[in-house]
Nucleic acid binder design. Structure first.
Lengths: 264, 264
DNA sequence: CGGGTACTTGATTATCGTCAACAATCGTGG
DNA sequence: CCACGATTGTTGACGATAATCAAGTACCCG
């Protein structure tokens, strides 16, 4: 039994849901008859597979999902984790096929919306185009943040920054930001952050010993949020100052064209 | 003198240009009267600044541009480099302000197109929505690739993969893939790849010594492309096999719903 | 030609990965 | 309810890769 005809009204994620937004934008009423496909996946099951031809985006309704990329040598890297209410799968739009695989990390309900459908409806309601672009842009922001996290951050900084990011996302969903359960195991955290499992274990142990958090298995309690925050990126590497320097010396050479009307 | 009224016809980048695509899509004719703003920037000059409120995308017409993120401690990280024909600035759409700064790496001509304009025109021609989404999705693919490059890759693998990526991008622009000039200095490469300048220098020296490429200053010549390719990611770390394993054991538990109709 | 930036090379150190062994937890079935 | 095996997590010893510190060379631009 496909759940396509089920109402989105009862969906706990409707306030995050792009389909709901679309429906509201198009009709001004509450969500109904969205062309979508709902399914339940068990732990370890794929939602889509790398190089599968399709383009759709997906919304996590419950559970959690990880996006994994496998390279030519078979090495896997976890690009990201998705929590209830979050949208994933935008990376498939470019080639019309997915550059990575999506895997349910626990029993999860996922809602699938084809891109073509979004595009069609978007053209009917211009405001919605902006919502679409914003959603994708948000994803771009997130991945850039990940790239930054992986560059020059030490193991401890990566882990703290990762945990604080999770915490923030739980807070965004009106859940506790200080006490939650990690949806992934240590191996996945290590893989995602480019570290060895042992390092993750050790660093978590050290942070716990410092009294900034408690972690038992996947149960996490943040005890000293501000101190954790202050620990990430305390000038780990040489501070390079291209922006200020170069601008200082070069601003005088400004081409007149650059100054002309900012409006257009 | 604003160049807004200048024709896009003479632009060498029109075949890469989103504005040109838009114009064609909307009118079926060649590029004209695109609402855009062209400007020349000197080396080190900012095209947009972190947290500046604006949302537009930009096309490199000549020269090259780097996107730099500055964190709370003042540490800078280069997110990406953009070559002629490439589009940047999508990350600003999410918040309506830029999470990073764009800096010209040499005398560069850059074309600016406001997002609102793209959105308006896109609603007039539905096909163009897809082009827009594809462009952003491509950017997402690129940044994910960067994240992968930064995770678990050794210094040598990062550098080779970075150079081969550049090479490919030059090839895409009908320029030589084997002989080109790096638009950035070693410090920028190091920053971008999360390495120390000395490491970049040493690794480049080593690769050169192996006879796979020649590099003098910024002039690069790839001598053995296939061997370089084979050097990236030769199983640097333990091969983790969640996908196959978990799927093998769990596929039997498949919820019937997951198998129902792939079409919708 | 001189000054500054960019790049290279060497010596030393530290972080983190690897290998190895062990402990805790979970899920399943008797 | 407990026992079992399997998965997951922890801890220690050791080594390798790359960062840091330091010095020196090449290059570019005025």
């Amino acid at each position: 039994m496909s759940i396509e005809r089920s109402s989105c009204k009862e969906c706990h994620q409707s306030h995050h849901c792009i389909a709901a937004k679309l429906s509201e934008a198009v009709r001004g009423n509450k969500v109904k008859d969205i062309s979508r496909h709902e399914a339940i996946y068990v732990r370890g099951q794929r939602i889509f597979s790398q190089s599968a031809c399709s383009s759709a985006c997906y919304i996590v309704k419950s559970g959690s999902v990880k996006i994994v990329n496998v390279d030519a040598q078979g090495n896997e890297r976890i690009i990201g984790f998705y929590l209830p209410g979050e949208v994933f799968g935008w990376e498939g739009v470019f080639r019309g096929s997915f550059p990575s695989t999506a895997i349910a990390m626990e029993r999860s309900m996922v809602c699938k919306i084809p891109i073509e459908y979004l595009e069609q409806r978007a053209s009917a309601k211009p405001d919605f185009i902006h919502s679409l672009l914003k959603l994708m842009s948000r994803e771009l922001n997130n991945v850039e943040q990940l790239a930054i996290r992986l560059t020059r951050y030490t193991a401890e900084e990566r882990i703290i920054s990762f945990l604080l990011d999770l915490s923030q996302r739980y807070a965004d969903r009106k859940l506790s930001a200080l006490y939650f359960r990690l949806p992934m195991n240590r191996t996945d955290i290590a893989n995602h952050l480019g570290l060895a499992v042992e390092t993750v274990s050790r660093v978590l142990g050290r942070i716990q010993h410092d009294g900034d958090l408690t972690i038992r298995g996947r149960e996490l309690k943040i005890l000293n949020h501000s101190r954790l925050l202050s620990k990430i990126s305390v000038a780990p590497n040489t501070e390079i100052r291209y922006i200020s320097e170069e601008n200082k010396t070069k601003v005088l050479e400004l081409d007149p064209k650059c100054l002309s009307g900012t409006s257009f």
